[in-house]
Design a protein around this nucleic acid. Structure first.
Lengths: 163, 163
DNA sequence: CTGAACATTCAGTCTTGACTGAACGTACTA
DNA sequence: TAGTACGTTCAGTCAAGACTGAATGTTCAG
């Protein structure tokens, strides 16, 4: 029930935090995601701050940032409770894929624009096109996974009951 | 012929640099990749440093780092020339995909390990499994693209016979 | 051996951004 | 009205790490 982490969970949270840190999020933000991933109920700012041992200010800032990026959701509070409760977004992985897709799209566009530059040697423009094609192909695959994340590949799709 | 960049190329290089900066590389490293992508011949450390207006020390460090990550290649120098010449790796996008794949694999493993933790509520473990499945599916798609980057297209997921 | 032409290393500087904690704003309650 | 319980903001501190440039290898030509 509470939000206290045992050592194994602590490690998990830290692990996720580090992964996200390499992806342009702050360490704290990453740990928030990891923490909420392990919770079966919404958690308030204070609970998160206590569990992660960071200041409430950090959690406030990062939680809103994560929400804006679609990785977290704010749940309606019980009547008479003014606290904000956060949950990890049910489709968090899809949100991540969507970000990646946009990134790839931007990269491909930049490469395409470079092809059109004057005085581009043949060898360079063919390389640019090749790179661009690959990124576009990846972007297309991501789109499909985004559209139908459950059906992807050959995995079994267990459809769990929504609590 | 030389390695001087016009404004449009400058912008391209900067753009690529910023993209990489968000991915755990230094700004200079990103700009090196961008710069070499536009070159039709191998470039020496000095040429790179001059074109990007950074110290030779930076270029030396970052170029070797990029080489270790498979994003750059060192080409054999002409006889009697002791300089190091770098080119962007012909399969740079594939190297990038491979890194992503490994990252996803690590993430999926972490999620799987968390499922096995004691006292994991049902709701949590089913979420962990769901997230894990998605990441695994993406990893599989990446594997296919890595195996046959040129052929990537449309909806097809069937691997053409490759000996 | 000496000098030239490289690449590499590393101590030092500087920038960036994370994080804190206290002050502040806000909304509800009694 | 005052009081309480929140969330938000922001100036300040701090640490990580990027970048520099001079010193230090290293290799080759003569």
């Amino acid at each position: 029930m509470s939000a206290i982490l045992d050592p194994a969970q602590e490690r998990f949270v830290e692990h996720i935090g580090l992964l996200w840190e390499g992806q342009g999020l702050s360490r704290v933000a990453g740990r928030i995601v990891g923490f909420l991933t392990l919770q079966d109920a919404p958690r308030s700012l204070d609970e998160i701050a206590t569990a992660l041992n960071v200041s409430k200010g950090s959690v406030s800032t990062d939680a809103r940032l994560l929400q804006a990026r679609g990785l977290l959701e704010r749940t309606p509070a019980p009547a008479g409770d003014r606290r904000d409760y956060y949950v990890v977004a049910p489709d968090l992985p899809v949100a991540v894929l969507e970000e990646r897709r946009r990134e790839l799209h931007g990269l491909a566009s930049a490469l395409e624009a470079a092809v059109a530059l004057p005085d581009t040697p043949k060898a360079v423009s063919s390389r640019l096109k090749r790179f661009c094609d690959i990124y576009r192909a990846v972007a297309r695959q991501l789109e499909q996974l985004i559209a139908a994340p459950a059906k992807a590949g050959g995995t079994r799709t267990t459809t769990p009951r929504t609590p």
